[in-house]
Design a protein around this nucleic acid. Structure first.
Lengths: 159, 159
DNA sequence: GCGCCGTGCTTGCAATTGCAAACACATCCG
DNA sequence: CGGATGTGTTTGCAATTGCAAGCACGGCGC
């Protein structure tokens, strides 16, 4: 149970690198690791240490935690929808914004439930990076802008 | 220049272990690492990998992130606000979806900061990513910690 | 044709991780 | 006293990390 996980982190890194449109050597340079080693990491042949992981995260300009989670190093047993709790508890959001976030989140989960029946992970290896392609994406982007603009009628912040 | 930093993480682990009132061997057993190796880690003679760190965190019943921060692997002041932490930790999302949610959330907050600077914060961009309102702050803290480690957390060791 | 620069991959190799076994030192019990 | 049993530590050693050097393939200018 040790190598398969490494594979996922490798795929994830490579995916993110492709998304950033940079070469392996370039990322290696920015991350301060050697090119061949990064190559091996991406192909799941090597298991990078936390330090290397952190460097790569910096080179990719993504959160180290995202990488750790992907590497299964933070995957404690609370992967579920604490997101909803956090969103509901976030008072810096207007009611409308909150509802949008909840809506989007739930639509995502619904989507994933349909795609991945039981216990299977999404794996994030959709090869489809950032641009909107799915319905949910488009909806989300639209909702984000439209609702964000709607701040002109702020809510009383405290019921 | 081999292990200057490691000392702090070792001390931290030993400190936490003492606080938990368990022996070195006991923690080693619970964490699934060898006793001598844990001894060396605590004395800063060895630099544990992320996996080992994670296992030790589990053995100590503390959040892995706390250890990573101590190890200087996250010291990068990553903006970890409640919702963001929850979204990042949610493994039921694909990376794409995660990015969308994060993006939307941040755009909301940005809009709100521009619209209602509830307290006139000068440059909270680098210091504390947390909200300003006392109430909101408390709630957010609660949400964040509950997500970060659902189990009991005796003392987060204020840093 | 040839050389040059760009990509990613393979190959040894020093340095390090992480462990099993054994050690030193206490404490407790016969 | 002799011997368990507890603590943390030291000592080799296989396995692994991470790198420098070099390889193979491809595109571009001459």
């Amino acid at each position: 149970m040790e190598l398969p996980k490494v594979g996922s982190i490798g795929e994830y890194i490579r995916d993110q690198r492709k998304q950033a449109k940079i070469s392996l050597r370039q990322l290696a340079s920015q991350a301060g690791v050697s090119n061949p080693y990064l190559s091996q990491i991406e192909r799941g042949l090597r298991k990078p240490s936390a330090e290397i992981l952190n460097q790569i995260a910096k080179g990719l300009r993504i959160s180290s935690q995202a990488l750790y989670v992907q590497a299964g190093l933070i995957d404690d047993r609370e992967p579920d929808s604490d997101v909803l709790a956090a969103v509901r508890a976030d008072r810096s959001l207007t009611e409308r914004q909150r509802q949008v976030l909840i809506d989007i989140y739930e639509s995502f989960r619904k989507e994933n439930r349909a795609a991945a029946p039981a216990g299977t992970e999404p794996a994030a290896a959709d090869a489809r990076p950032w641009p909107e392609t799915d319905e949910a994406d488009a909806v989300a982007q639209e909702a984000a802008t439209s609702v964000a603009d709607e701040r002109s009628q702020p809510e009383p912040k405290e019921g």
